[in-house]
Computed example of a mutant assay.
Amino acid sequence: MATAKFSVLLLLLAFLICMADGQGLKVGFYKKTCPKVETIVKKTMDKVMAVAPSLGGPLLRMHFHDCFVRGCDGSILLNSTQNSQAEKDSFPNLSLRGYQIIDRAKSAVEKACPGVVSCADIVALVARDATVALKGPSWKVETGRRDGRVSISTEALTNLPSPFSNITTLIQGWQQKGLSRKDLVVLSGGHTIGTSHCGAFTNRLYNFTGKGDTDPSLDSNYIVNLKKKCKPNDQTTLVQMDPGSFKTFDKNYYTLVAKRRGLFQSDSALLNDSKTRIYVKHQAEHFKSSFFKDFGVSMVKMGRVGVLTGSAGEIRKVCSRIN
């Protein structure tokens, strides 16, 4: 009985968070104060992605990593200070790249509209434009976020889902942010682009239970291929998360997961829950996929998590430091 009551309370809390999040956001928030902001950001991103498409994955992940720690408030962009280590220097964020691209977009926007557009909103716009540049879906980005003034390294450790997570941990972590099972499996589809360091999954190849064994949930032929690329204790080699199309945003991720070729334990875990498994199998087996539409819907929903609006926070002049 106590467990059931706790579960109900957890779901109610998630619902209330979801209801509270997103207040003050809207599409076209800067229509009067900075009407060309989206055009400016898109032009910046088009130039970047034309020469560095490999930044698409990290820039999409940056929005996700920002929203899961203190909400979508740009705290991922703040530099560490002498007295405090910031989120970007926490272990889960050390593989993020593209901060200079956010700075470039911010500088261009500042020239047109000084002190108007938040860094948090630029992160959200960049994530959308990077996805589109890799032939992925577009969606209408709600804006109106303001920037937070706090960034704490340890909060990234406790709030960001781990690639080693099981399905129970994943579902609970996402529910705490007001996000559903469907949001979890849809946004995991972002793994269709980008790369990962071997260290995020080599335990599955060499020492899964501490006995020198492999992960039985990972396809044995895929294990052979991965071992050719990643030796034990390799922390530097990069591996494509969606082999063959890691620079193209497509639904191939679900085909891989359905074949037990998801790179991370958190990918394979999607087959261990009836609802997430149904979605994976549906996207893998149907030519006419709803994935692109679903991805946009879930990105908008994630972009509302824990936002600062109105007079809360600030509009940073420089994204890496508070005013």
Rank of each mutant, 00 (worst) to 15 (best):
V318C: 04
L134I: 03
L12D: 03
T39W: 01
C230R: 13
G244F: 05
L218D: 08
V186I: 15
V150T: 13
S289R: 03
V109N: 00
Y279Q: 08
S80K: 07
K251R: 14
S196T: 15
G262A: 09
T248F: 09
S311Y: 10
G28N: 00
Q265K: 10
I223E: 05
L179D: 08
T255G: 12
G262R: 04
K229M: 06
T131E: 13
P161L: 13
R260L: 01
K177Y: 08
E142D: 09
N93C: 11
L238F: 14
K36A: 14
A2R: 15
R277Q: 15
L10F: 13
C119K: 10
D103S: 15
N233G: 04
K106W: 00
M241H: 06
L256C: 01
P163Y: 09
T81L: 05
Q240I: 01
Q235E: 14
I101S: 08
R70M: 07
K293A: 08
A105C: 10
V51R: 05
R316W: 08
G24P: 09
E87P: 00
C34M: 06
L205T: 11
K275I: 11
L94Y: 03
K281G: 01
I278W: 02
L134K: 01
L11W: 01
S320M: 06
P114M: 14
S289L: 13
A86F: 04
A284W: 06
R97G: 11
K47C: 09
G148N: 02
S54T: 12
S311L: 13
K275A: 12
K227C: 06
A284C: 13
N323I: 10
D219S: 09
A200T: 08
P161V: 08
A14N: 08
C230H: 09
I171V: 09
Y30C: 00
F246Y: 14
K228L: 12
T33L: 12
V239L: 07
N221C: 03
A312P: 00
L218W: 05
L11D: 03
K88D: 00
A86G: 02
A269M: 01
P216K: 13
K275G: 00
A4G: 00
V126M: 08
K31F: 01
K301I: 11
F201L: 05
L271H: 03
V300M: 13
G136A: 10
K229S: 09
K251A: 15
E155C: 01
A14S: 15
F6Q: 09
V300Q: 15
L13K: 06
L160V: 12
E314C: 13
R97W: 02
C67K: 09
V318N: 06
K301Q: 11
F64P: 02
D242H: 11
A124I: 07
S289Y: 14
G190Q: 13
D66Y: 10
K140I: 00
A130D: 05
R277P: 00
N83T: 11
G262D: 04
I322Y: 04
K182I: 12
C34R: 02
L96T: 01
S162K: 15
A312C: 04
N203H: 10
L94K: 14
G210D: 11
A112W: 03
K288T: 12
S268T: 05
M241W: 00
L125R: 02
H282V: 04
Y30H: 06
V109P: 02
D129M: 06
Y254L: 10
V132L: 11
C34P: 07
L187R: 11
Q283R: 03
I101P: 05
T33M: 09
V185K: 09
V69F: 06
